[in-house]
Amino acid sequence: MSKGTSIGRVRGLGPAHDGAHHWLVQRFTAVGNLVLMIWLGASLVALPDLGFETVSKWLAAPIPATAMILLVVSTFWHARLGLQVLVEDYVHEAGSKFGALVLLNLAAIGGAAFGIFAVARLALSGAA
């Protein structure tokens, strides 16, 4: 042990090599998830029934459609960050880790895009 402070000697040695930004965004999206999931749960309870007519008409209106799109973005972002930690903790080989993170990004962005498209189609098709 020679130069530098004790923090300087350990900085960047974790499996992800950095993390303050990841840590903060995980919490920002957690707050988004909390607010939007309370909205979704309360909406499902408040709807008179959960049949196609009722639910599609409800979700096609501007505010529910916007909230649902935000919910998709927030949950997929949060899930991507959480699964990244899972990969970093348990996949130790550099190549496999890189591959797993590539697949994770494709799945998270692809899934969110599909969710947003589904809501947009419902909202813009004049179903309501």
Partner: peptide
């Protein structure tokens, strides 16, 4: 629960939204 929600929960959410659309 977080990883379960990420892997299964979001898939069901997409299935539900896709079915609605």
């Amino acid at each position: 629960t977080g990883d379960g929600l990420a892997l299964v929960g979001l898939a069901v959410l997409l299935w539900w939204l896709g079915a609605l659309a």
